[in-house]
Simulated scan of single mutants.
Amino acid sequence: MSNLDWVKGGVLAAALVCVTGFAHAQAAGGSIYTCIDRNGRKLTADRPIPECLDREQRELGPTGIVRRQIGPSLTEQERAAAEVQRRKEDEERSRQVEERRRERVLTARYPDKAAHDVERAAAIAMVDDVTATAEKRIAELREQRKAFDSEMEFYKKDPNKAPMTLRRRIAENEDSIAEQRKFLAGQDQEKRRVHQRFDTELAQLRKLWDAQRAPVTGADAVPAAAATR
């Protein structure tokens, strides 16, 4: 068989494959996908062709009419970038859902400013109670120090002759007072943090309360009505 015969045979075989593919598509009522791959070969299949994801494909109907053009699909790098973007969008949607949930909880807990003021006062009262306990302890330590100072009067001329136990108690007393004063300073900061938290919360609540009191427009009324069904 000559080379020409081999070529003719190959062409006839390729044509037979295409005709067979179209015949199957017509019988099934499906589609035929066709493209030219990166090597210049024309490919045909009954589903999107993996070898042509990076280039345009055509979807043909059973009669051979072009239904649509597909692609090219994204490259691996583009798919990775798209996945990163999708995750960011999912995270943002989740954040917004969580924010809406937190807002509902907040307005349910504080339906008005009076309720918010009550809880602020309770939080400050707790700090004040702890502060009062520390101040009481400082007063006790100062009374204790007076007793130590009375004992030290006997050693006024030469404090080094005072018993070691007395001097140790005085040092411990001074350390305890310093520690309580440091604690009181921390409680002052805590009170400021409590007020700041409630101030920030109140600013947000004012907006939420205003939104709740705002009249429902026609555009907003439709989703609201649908949600109640």
Rank of each mutant, 00 (worst) to 15 (best):
Q180M: 14
D199H: 08
I170Y: 00
E153Y: 04
D220Q: 15
R100G: 04
A122H: 06
R192V: 13
E174I: 07
A211Y: 06
S176A: 15
R197W: 07
I170M: 09
D199G: 03
K182R: 13
G218T: 08
Q187H: 08
W209E: 05
V222P: 00
A214T: 10
A214H: 08
A214W: 08
R137W: 07
P159V: 05
P223K: 04
Q212R: 13
A134Y: 11
R142S: 10
D158M: 05
A203R: 10
L166P: 01
F198R: 00
A125V: 01
Q96S: 09
A162Y: 01
A125R: 05
S150C: 07
V105F: 12
Q144G: 14
L202G: 06
S94I: 04
D158G: 02
E174G: 04
K156P: 00
A178E: 10
T133F: 12
K113F: 12
D149E: 15
D112V: 07
V222I: 15
D90F: 07
R101D: 10
V216M: 05
A132F: 06
N160A: 15
D220N: 12
V118P: 01
R95A: 15
Q196W: 02
A185V: 09
A123S: 08
V130S: 13
A211R: 08
E140N: 09
A132R: 11
E103L: 04
A121E: 09
Q180D: 11
N173D: 08
D128W: 02
E103P: 01
L208R: 01
K207S: 13
A221N: 06
M164S: 13
V222A: 10
A162F: 02
A139W: 08
D220M: 13
H195S: 10
